[in-house]
Write a protein that binds this DNA or RNA. Sequence first.
DNA 1: CGATAATATATCAAATATGATATAAAAAAG
DNA 2: CTTTTTTATATCATATTTGATATATTATCG
Lengths: 104, 104
Amino acid sequence: MDSKKQQRLEAQGWKIGDAADFLELTPEETMIIVMRLALSRGLKERRKSLMTQAELATKISSSQPRVAMAENGDSSVSIELLIRAMLATGASPQEIGQIIATSA
Amino acid sequence: MDSKKQQRLEAQGWKIGDAADFLELTPEETMIIVMRLALSRGLKERRKSLMTQAELATKISSSQPRVAMAENGDSSVSIELLIRAMLATGASPQEIGQIIATSA
DNA sequence: CGATAATATATCAAATATGATATAAAAAAG
DNA sequence: CTTTTTTATATCATATTTGATATATTATCG
């Protein structure tokens, strides 16, 4: 992994490093992170074609900055908020399940 | 409820529906709750054949009471903890995604 | 270009989720 | 039935997640 991407991930609160550091993550921890990133990406893709971050924020009684953090994979955003946001874009449980199923 | 009784009640001005209607939940709120319950059930099923609640708690650095709450669909348990617990029972992201996809 | 809209980053108090602990209740074993 | 194990419920201090706000940065458009 190049150091710029690493710096970005660490700035977002993730514990990502080189191969040795990476071993400190259990497979389960890695799977959770990958699921969250998959949901983030899916959210950004869906939302962009439908509405602004501010509009989505209103739909889920949240704020534009939090939607931005959700789409950027910030570690302070819960999986539940990611799912709530996905649903607010019209995503079905099937689509959400598919994203999780194919994330790792 | 049989439809005759419902018709009688509605004729009297009552709005009869299911639990979601009664609680005035949006479709999205309902979906989230159903997802959580599906994960709870899946967790309980998987865990029971493999280990005790106390053993699972240790695996996810949690406590037996919290695992009990997770399996009983307590609202104070996050979707993330449910997923972490599922993974600790050996469930794959595919299986977890499948549970979510088919929940609603 | 300059203006306007959209998105990203930082901070914060309040709400929610957390593991731990004690212990009650229920189930299983003997 | 009695003991032992397992699961459920209650409480609590701590940690995390939250929406709100201010504002910086970036994209869009005229």
